[in-house]
Design a protein around this nucleic acid. Structure first.
Lengths: 194, 194
DNA sequence: CGCGCAATCTTAACGCTGTCAAGATATACT
DNA sequence: AGTATATCTTGACAGCGTTAAGATTGCGCG
């Protein structure tokens, strides 16, 4: 309920949402504190009542990002034949569908990871999804002696894939796939499933 | 031979070197055109005689980065029992030893990849190293039917590993290793060598 | 050799950015 | 009701990327 009162009533939450909107519509580079403030209809210095820094606001944005990220991965596992494939597809597809947000979430220059972890469990629960997957799913070919190793391996793989596709260093078209998505699926199925 | 003449004589090359120096000493965020110019002892607008943009200078920096990157990976293969392991270690260790430069090299916001590829073969030859490795080295466990797939897989893995270690999302200490390097080695040996 | 042209560099200015200090305004509590 | 506190605005600062105008230099051509 944002009224035209002097006090906004809900600023900190709305700043985060506006930031995400700006992020998707105009990209990471265009995301300035002043733009976010203006778009929210508030003065340039207003955010400083809620966030000590630009980095603090960005961290809040990252937290919301991790929340959506976890959701996406959970949904990925639903209609999928293999749990692991669903997770991996969820991971990469989130990155491809929310490129700027994903970049922000893993950008140490813009986000204070300690702050993120102190104020949210979204990141660690996302990781727990991976860890559980490699513990439970019998389709993973790497054995069960060291599940932490396997999850780290999996994580690095999908993270690198996402990053390289976003950087256009890997493209589905280069391998005669109709989309990046189908390339990713083929890759995951080849290397993760027996 | 940079004299105190009005004309510098070697500006474009020296700007690139100064940029790399600033990158390593003060990080990605501190790397401004004006800082680079000042450090080189030249006016703020001088770089515009050699680069049309900040992005153009950054692309030149990235090219030099890829050149060193390739060298590092080649050296990695020398004293190593397995070619693939050497390459992978070279990849990740370059990232850990030159964090800011590595970030820049893969940052689509700061670097124009098309410009990089048009003015240098360093990137593609780096990739060719990987491709050759998976073609030749019999120790890779993924078969030889689709080497392009295997190299993409390998690339994503090491890239993700590097990124996540830089973001402190993966740390050797978490697994009781004395360094990130030994964790990476253990991981690569487990998943890449039969 | 000298003259002019083109390359190179400087100075000055523009609008943008993050941040802070001072003060205005509204809400909450006693 | 009145005061303390949280919230927001205005105005300012230095630093950023970029451009325009002009100064300085080196090079090629007569």
């Amino acid at each position: 309920m944002p009224n035209k009162t002097y006090h906004h009533g809900n600023l900190s939450a709305e700043l985060v949402l506006q930031a995400i909107q700006l992020l998707e519509s105009e990209g990471l580079e265009a995301l300035s504190l002043r733009r976010v403030a203006k778009e929210t209809g508030v003065s340039q210095a207003a955010p400083y009542s809620h966030f000590k820094d630009k980095k603090a606001l960005m961290s809040a944005v990252a937290i919301e990002g991790y929340r959506r990220f976890e959701l996406k991965m959970r949904k990925g596992t639903e209609r999928e034949s293999h749990y692991i494939i669903g997770l991996g597809m969820g991971y990469v597809m989130f990155a491809l569908e929310n490129p700027a947000l994903f970049s922000l979430m893993f950008s140490g220059e813009r986000v204070n990871f300690t702050e993120v972890d102190n104020n949210s469990h979204a990141f660690s629960t996302s990781y727990a999804l991976l860890l559980n997957a490699v513990k439970e799913d019998p389709l993973v070919q790497f054995g069960k002696e060291k599940p932490e190793f396997d999850s780290m391996f999996l994580w690095s793989l999908v993270h690198g894939l996402a990053k390289l596709i976003l950087a256009k260093r890997i493209q589905g078209a280069d391998f005669a796939y109709e989309s990046d998505e189908s390339l990713v699926r083929a890759l995951l199925e080849k290397y993760l499933v027996v």
